[in-house]
């Protein structure tokens, strides 16, 4: 009896240990009907050797920059103006006029970067829209999963349609929607280059009516 129970315990804990390994990440999004735009160059990421597999040792630096050039007015939709992140992106370095150069390797992931920024702005504004946004998010994600048409990543972190509506649609004027979209994209695992890839893809999508 003890042997059987011991075997089950070992099995349980070993499977749990396997669960703490890194999940496989899909780098190339399969997107039917949305061809990747060649107008925005997206380079491959160059993770510094000082960064280990757990993401430790990420040091913000200006070396190994420049993944994608995104028009400034589009980035301003995403990043609140005048914030710390905005200044570090716009005022540092030498961006081309009208463009913002996003650094590669400067931040561990786009998710954390965007989430921190949004959370900071939300705290400064003294409101708590995050819960409302998240509640809506769950509903919307479920709808998108049912549609199964424009899933950008396997785990359903981002959807082409959502990004397209955000970046080229006419809903961009509403501040709440903007945060909604950013939050939507930041809830899952989404590295910076993947965001840029999604941006590039969204530019080739017809605007939402």
């Amino acid at each position: 009896m003890r042997n059987e129970r011991s075997f089950l315990v070992v099995l349980f804990f070993t499977v749990g240990l396997a669960g703490t390994s890194k999940a496989p990440v899909r780098s190339s999004p399969p997107s039917p009907g949305a061809a990747t735009s060649a107008s925005v160059p997206v380079a491959t990421s160059s993770v510094p050797s000082s960064v280990d597999a757990k993401g430790r040792g990420v040091v913000p630096s200006t070396e190994g920059w420049e993944l994608a050039k995104v028009p400034r007015h589009r980035i301003e939709l995403m990043i609140p103006r005048g914030g710390k992140i905005y200044k570090s992106l716009v005022d540092d370095g030498e961006p081309a006029p009208g463009f913002i150069v996003l650094r590669d390797g400067a931040l561990p992931s786009g998710r954390k970067w965007l989430f921190d920024n949004i959370a900071e702005q939300d705290r400064l504004a003294g409101n708590s829209r995050m819960t409302t946004i998240k509640r809506r998010l769950a509903v919307d994600r479920e709808l998108a999963r049912r549609r199964q048409d424009d899933v950008l990543f396997d785990d359903g972190t981002a959807f082409v349609g959502r990004w397209g509506r955000y970046f080229v649609g006419d809903a961009c004027g509403i501040a709440d929607k903007r945060e909604y979209c950013v939050e939507f994209s930041t809830n899952g695992e989404m590295p910076l280059e993947a965001i840029m890839e999604a941006v590039a893809m969204a530019r080739s999508i017809r605007p939402m009516r």
């Binding site: 749990g16 703490t20 890194k22 999940a23 993401g55 785990d155």
Partner: peptide
């Protein structure tokens, strides 16, 4: 506290 683990998917 961690990102991108198999545990998250499960």
């Amino acid at each position: 506290l961690r990102d991108g683990l198999v545990l998250h998917l499960w």
